[in-house]
Amino acid sequence: MKNEHQHQHPHLEQDEIRCSCDQDHDHSKRQYAHPDEPCSCGHDHHEHQNHHSHQEESYICGHDHDKHEIHEHLRPKTNLGDLSITHHENAIIISAEREISGEYLPIKEAIAVGLNGLADWVESQNGLVGHIKTHLTEKGKSAILSTTGDGVQVNEVYHPKVILNLAVIVFAVDEADLANQVLTILNKLY
């Protein structure tokens, strides 16, 4: 997760945008008396780490950070396997893309069952489904057509596969449990 020597958060690319905490950082100070203690901002810092590429920005924790580390909230959000998990307002947003070997129809049917089960699980947790969506694309046929002037040779291969794009937006459930539910559905497809 650590992204050394880089600061990738979008607001670091824009000098005019300040940190959400609206405080200034002092880069000359160390952050922690006890580096093993968690930062009050809830983020994961290293004692020599720094949030920012420019000094005007700062973070709600009020600590300074060394420039060799990216701040937790500048990193990509939680990743569980190949799932990307982000948040907006109170929503948990999971997205994923997978290539699954196999025929389109049984995969489509298995996903339909899986998504229905996922919606039921959310309800059972007293959560709220925003939406649960997938897009499937069938792939797998390819051919080489060639000639040296004496007719056309055709070599066809068929390795059926499905490209799956998934978007899940859900409210008021445990994030890790939700991610595990999604992974269970996806992993059954292989």
Binding site: S84, S95, K133, H135
Partner: peptide
Amino acid sequence: NEIGGSGVDNLL
């Protein structure tokens, strides 16, 4: 516009 990192509707 998709809130997540990848889209579904755009593909359709």
